[in-house]
Structure formats: structure tokens, C-alpha cells
Design a protein around this nucleic acid. Structure first.
Lengths: 254, 254
DNA sequence: CTTACACCTTTACGTAACGTCAATGTCAAG
DNA sequence: CTTGACATTGACGTTACGTAAAGGTGTAAG
């Protein structure tokens, strides 16, 4: 089946402007342009738009969505499984807000009292903790870890070659970490291998290497929910194991 | 308890910039300014911020939130009950998206097939139906009903006096409609009274009266989920009854 | 007492994800 | 062959803030 902008837009519930914008930023390009310059979308584009809308539903910004879905090693099925988990979390957050509304109603009726800070439970978005607020910002400023968070900004100045090497390294790290988790020993040879691979990845990402920064990042992986979600997806405890291995390798004391 | 910007922001999980912006647009003004020019918030402001954040969670734009919470006849308890309903709807929408992800996963595994348009169920935001798309736009352009939707734009050119008269009328309409729903007869005297009150309301809102436009708006009340949610909140069928009463009054044929 | 440091202020420009014209070309139907 | 719904590319507008600049305030520690 083939679609013009309007047909696709109507089907997906978005405007033609949105589709043109997605084309403009390279997020979703039409399968082809016909002789009159019209955008024509095919089956592949429909599926991709669906993925895009799933990510958008989870408040991922378009730049990040682009980095994710245009990544040559993008795995649609894994992404869908990820959506499932995130959506369940989102539903729990809504349940928390619903509970808050119920409590607030009860408090206005005098059936109970609420502390001021309780009035915002469920409405606060994340904010790992005060420590992260304080040191997280500091360490990011110091070592430019923001560049790691926002993949696109980091990748912008990177050659396609380096990008692929990084992807390969990332996959290897995953595999090696899966082996290491079985031993559960951060000093084991395989865990140290993972730490070393991660060091190589850092070097590519930052353009240089710094032990202290590496250790700081490792701790952040454990503290920051987004990172643990990434590393602990399949095997819980992976983030902590990687951190401990990096601590050993860099000679960092806890 | 009193709060400075940072304390309140930290408690509610928002930035100080956001609080300053809310002050700037008149959405949430501090209780007082101290001798050094610092913004000081009190208990009332905390509760108001909570209401604001509930509305924001439901994707209401700040301009509309302002129109709602600064309205002198704003009823906090009713608002909370409304939030409850909207949040339950939102949870259902998330459930729909979850179902979609599950189906999509099943289809990638070949356990079932999906039509292209099924791939977007739950992701489409509203779009009542094609009819609304077509005639809704037309009627809005013709009669300026967009001005009714976005209260602020409509109220901008309206004197405070008219605004209060409209609010009084709206309350009366509610009361009379509640009586009318008991008879269930759009031709009944009380239902016709409601239709007449609504006519007066329209006249104030639009600055003029037009039978055809009034009938069109009545149909929109039934078709548009936002309107039915408003009119049918307590008593289902109210929107349809009002429409039928207006049809009779204006001599419109279905 | 002053030095540090985390607060606070206003002013002002930047950003994301489109909405909304404007000006113009295309195509199927009557 | 005109009409009306479609398409195109600019280009400027909007919302809800982020972010930096330049400076005043409050308190704890040296």
C-alpha cells in the first residue's frame, strides 16, 4: 500500500506539516518522490512512523528518536519490548497521580491531612536524588558527560567510521557483561575485559581518556535510573558489576 | 509554611525559571515580595501550584489553565473530580497503546497480521470522525466557534461584566438542564427554557445570534467528546437533550 | 570584618516541534 | 475547462520554558 502525506497523516492522526517536518529533519523520509514532487510512503515507512509515535508517546525528543531509529543496528522487536516496559511504568505513574488526587479530595473534605510535599507525589518527573542534583551536575560539567547523554550532539562531530566502531564496542560490552554477571566477581578476568572495552568506548566517545571521569561515569550508571534501565534490562545487577569492575581497573576507592 | 522559589520548585519538581515564568504570565503569583525583592509563596500558592500541575499533566496549555484557575467561580473540589475522570481516561488510553504494542509484537512474530490503520490505534489523539473533520472545520470557520473553544481568546474582548453574566447564565443552564433531563422530553417547557438560556449565552459569546449556527453548535456538543464530557458529566444524555431542544426551538430538521 | 558561596533578582536571547499563512503547481470530476 | 481538493516550498509565529549575563542578598566560616 502507498500513501500520500494526507492519507498517511489521517491514518496516523498527525498533520501533513508534521510529516513534512519529519522529512526535513531526516526522521522519516518518504519511500520515493513521484514525478510531481509528491511524497509517497510505503509499508516500511508506516512501520517506522509507528515506532516514532511510540517513542513520542514516551516523551522522547525527535532528535533522540532519530538517533535511535536511524541507527543501523536498531532492533524493532527489542524496541517494542522496551516500549511495553516504559508504558507499564507510565501507567503506574498515572496511578500514583490518581492516588494523589483522591488523597487531596479526602483532605479538602477534612477526612485527612496532607503535608505540602505530599501534594506533589507523582507529579515530580524524576530527579534521582539531591546527591545527583549536586554532584551529577558537577561531574557532567567537569567531564562533558552531557555529550554522552545526548547522543546526537556527541555523534555530530564523529566520523561514520568511529560511530560504527562504537556500536561494535557497545555490542561486545553487552555480550561480555552477560558472561561476567554469571561469575558475579568484578575482579574476574571477564569483568575486567568488560571494563577495558568500556574504556575503549569512552576514549572514542570523549576523544580522550581520564580515569577519574571514567569512575565518575560508572557511579552515574548505577545512580541514574536511565542508565540502569539500559544496563540492567536483561540482567539485574549489571550496572553495579560494571561500576565495581571499573573501580578496580582504575584503582578507585569506594 | 513559606517558600522561596527554590524551595517550592524543589518540592514540586519544577525549575525556578518555571515559577518565575508562571509569575510573569500571571498564572501563579507569589503571596508577597519581601524587602529584598524575593518571591515568597504561602499555603494558598502551594495548593494552586498543585492544581496547575494536575492540569499540566492532562496537557492543558498554560493559557487555558490560567483562564480556569483564575476564574472567580473556580471550584477546586469539582476540578479535582474532573482530574480523576480525565486521569482514568488517560490510563485507558495507555492501556490501548499497550495493547497495540502487544499486537505489533505478535504480528512481527507472525502470530497475527495487522492492518496499517490498526498500527495507530491508541496513538491517534482525538479526531472525532471524518464528518467532524469536514463539517466541524467548516462550521467553526463560518461561525467563529473556535473563539468559544479557546475561552481566553473569546473573553479577551469581553468586558468583565459580560463575563460574569455569562458565568451566571452557564450555571443557570446547568440547573435547568438537570431538571429537564428528568422529563427526558426536549419539547418540555423546562427543556425549552434551557435552550433559550443557551441562546442568550450564545448571544453574549458571539455578540450576535444566528439560528443555523446555534443548531450547528448543538450538534457539535453531541459529536465532540470534549463537549459531551462537559455536559454529560453528572447526567448522561444531557448533551443530546440540549441539542434536541435547540433543534426544536430553532426549527431545525434532523 | 570580609570572604565565600548559595541564594535571589531582571534582562534577554535560544530552542523544540510544530501551526499557520502565502504563493504556486497538480489532478480527478463534472 | 473550471472547480476544488490535493500537493509543493519558503518563511515567520508560538509555547513553555532553558540558559547565560550581570548583579544584589544572607549567612557561615576564617
Amino acid at each position: 500500500m502507498e500513501y500520500t502525506v494526507q492519507k498517511l497523516g489521517r491514518m496516523a492522526g498527525i498533520s501533513t506539516r508534521t510529516l513534512r517536518y519529519y522529512d526535513e529533519i531526516g526522521l522519516l523520509k518518504p519511500a520515493r518522490i513521484n514525478s510531481s514532487g509528491y511524497r509517497i510512503y510505503g509499508a516500511k515507512e508506516v512501520d517506522r512512523l509507528q515506532q516514532i509515535m511510540f517513542y513520542r508517546e514516551l516523551d522522547v525528543c525527535l532528535q533522540d528518536i532519530k538517533a535511535i531509529v536511524t541507527n543501523p543496528s536498531f532492533d524493532g522487536v527489542k524496541a517494542l519490548q522496551g516500549h511495553l516496559g516504559e508504558l507499564l511504568i507510565k501507567r503506574e505513574q498515572i496511578d500514583a497521580i490518581i492516588a494523589n488526587v483522591r488523597k487531596t479530595l479526602a483532605s479538602t473534605e477534612g477526612r485527612m491531612t496532607m503535608l505540602d510535599k505530599e501534594k506533589f507525589t507523582g507529579l515530580k518527573k524524576k530527579m534521582v536524588d539531591e546527591n545527583e542534583q549536586k554532584y551529577g551536575k558537577e561531574i557532567r560539567e567537569k567531564y562533558g558527560i552531557d555529550a554522552v547523554e545526548h547522543s546526537n550532539k556527541a555523534f555530530k562531530n564523529m566520523s561514520q567510521e568511529n560511530f560504527e566502531r562504537m556500536n561494535n564496542l557497545a555490542e561486545k560490552i553487552h555480550v561480555v557483561l552477560a558472561e561476567a554477571i554469571a561469575t558475579a566477581d568484578p575482579a574476574s578476568q571477564v569483568a575486567q575485559k568488560a571494563a577495558d572495552l568500556h574504556k575503549q568506548w569512552i576514549t572514542l566517545a570523549w576523544g580522550h581518556y581520564d580515569k577519574e571521569a571514567h569512575a565518575g561515569l560508572a557511579q552515574m550508571y548505577v545512580d541514574d535510573a536511565r542508565f540502569t534501565a539500559y544496563y540492567d534490562k536483561k540482567l539485574p545487577g549489571t550496572a553495579a558489576l560494571l561500576r565495581d569492575a571499573i573501580y578496580i581497573m582504575t584503582g578507585t576507592e569506594k
